[in-house]
Design a protein around this nucleic acid. Sequence first.
DNA 1: TATATTTAAGATAAAACACTCTTAAATATT
DNA 2: AATATTTAAGAGTGTTTTATCTTAAATATA
Lengths: 160, 160
Amino acid sequence: MGGFAMYLCRQKTLKMRVISRLGEYGLRALMYMAAHKSDTGYFNIRVMSQELDISFHFLTKILQGLTQRGLLQSYRGPNGGIGFLVPPDQITLATVVKALEGDDFFQNCLLGLPGCGERQPCPMHVFWTALRESLQTEFETTTLDDLGTQTLERHLRLKA
Amino acid sequence: MGGFAMYLCRQKTLKMRVISRLGEYGLRALMYMAAHKSDTGYFNIRVMSQELDISFHFLTKILQGLTQRGLLQSYRGPNGGIGFLVPPDQITLATVVKALEGDDFFQNCLLGLPGCGERQPCPMHVFWTALRESLQTEFETTTLDDLGTQTLERHLRLKA
DNA sequence: TATATTTAAGATAAAACACTCTTAAATATT
DNA sequence: AATATTTAAGAGTGTTTTATCTTAAATATA
């Protein structure tokens, strides 16, 4: 592993996780794909798994799911791989996260305090709602292309 | 279960969880204690577990941990229970969450994107940092007393 | 057609998380 | 002193998450 991938490398312990490992791996792979334009449009999963230090089979399964949900397309056999079905500048983070974590991702209270709803808001509800909404807005307005490009550019700038 | 406790009742499915069940249960119990002043200063764990619909043994273990960390004190035997060692108006949410989830709770990237740090910020780092800091600030400025009182008052207001 | 390559799919395993149960220790009451 | 009550502590169980392994299906190339 090296180059750009160091940027997306594994983080062993993590508190305050909002997305699961599955979601994290999926997002990292998509960011990788968005940042590395491919000639054929397809990326080899094994190479990606090595670059990103993610289990090959696990990553395969995650990307499989994104294929089934219509975000990616796959191609078997030699020189096969996985690529965007929808161009990455048309895929928002919100779409990705919902595909990976479930459609109700943005619907719940960030903290997990029960009874937190519009009808009977918990003490922190207003705060949480504001926080979640800014999160959701950010996710809905940021595309994979934005993220991948920004990441790559920043990395290159640091390197120079 | 009824009355105030309905407010702290269990929520079965939850996405976007930031704190674990253990943290949630602990926080709910502390909010309960902060809102219900006790004559003796001690609360019976079994009663609390029933009111909050949390497993008695599990809750006992969680509160045990808070006792060991110096937030609570316990008293065995008849009419025994668990109570605040530090008064709840001097316990911030930040202290509680750190005690329950670990001291490094606020140190990591909310999303879990790796490589997200001051030195080599990931594309979302600025956004995440802002989000996390407002979260942390809110947690550091809100005491258990604030939360419990607010909750109770709001509940009573709705009831009237 | 035979072989190698690559993703798909399903079964299995390991680890983390969320409880559950049993026994021990402390305290109060009789 | 005996008994009941309540938390402390540790072992054990079930579930979910995470990861791995094996086999199948598709595709390209020789």
